[in-house]
Simulated assay, not measured.
Amino acid sequence: MTDTKSLTSRLEALEAHIAHQDQTIEDLNKAITEQWTQFEKLQREISKLHAELEQVEAGGAGEADERPPHY
C-alpha cells in the first residue's frame, strides 16, 4: 500500500513539474517571438536609415554647403 502511495505521489510531482516546464517553454517562446518581431522592425529601420544616408552622401553634399534662402 505504501508503494502505491509513494508511486502516486511521485507521479503527481512529476506531472506538476512537467506542467511548470510546459508553461516556462510557452513563456520563453512568447518572449522570443516578441523579440524577433522587434529585431526585424529594427533591421528595417536601420536599412531605411542606411539608404537615406547613402542618398545624402551621394547627392546632398553640395546642398549642405549652400546658404538657406532667408540669408
Rank of each mutant, 00 (worst) to 15 (best):
M1D: 15
M1V: 11
D3K: 13
T4G: 12
S6E: 13
S6P: 05
L7S: 14
L7F: 11
T8M: 08
T8V: 06
T8L: 11
T8Y: 09
S9D: 10
R10V: 06
R10L: 13
R10C: 07
L11M: 11
L11E: 09
L11F: 12
L11P: 03
E12V: 04
A13P: 00
A13S: 03
L14A: 06
E15I: 05
E15A: 09
A16V: 05
A16D: 09
H17T: 13
H17C: 14
I18W: 05
I18Y: 06
H20D: 15
H20Q: 15
H20R: 14
H20F: 15
Q21V: 07
Q21F: 10
D22I: 04
D22T: 06
Q23H: 06
T24Y: 06
T24N: 05
I25A: 07
I25Y: 03
E26P: 00
E26W: 01
L28M: 05
N29K: 10
K30G: 11
A31K: 07
I32T: 02
T33H: 08
T33D: 11
E34V: 08
E34F: 06
Q35P: 02
Q35L: 12
W36K: 15
W36I: 12
W36F: 14
T37H: 15
Q38C: 05
E40P: 01
E40R: 06
K41F: 07
Q43Y: 09
Q43K: 15
Q43D: 10
R44C: 03
I46S: 10
I46M: 11
I46Q: 10
S47C: 04
S47T: 08
A51T: 13
E52C: 03
E52I: 04
L53G: 04
E54T: 06
E54K: 06
Q55S: 04
A58M: 01
G59W: 07
G59D: 12
G59F: 10
G60Q: 02
G60Y: 06
G60V: 01
E63C: 03
E63P: 02
A64C: 02
A64S: 05
D65G: 02
D65I: 00
D65T: 03
E66F: 00
P68G: 10
H70M: 11
H70K: 11
Y71C: 02
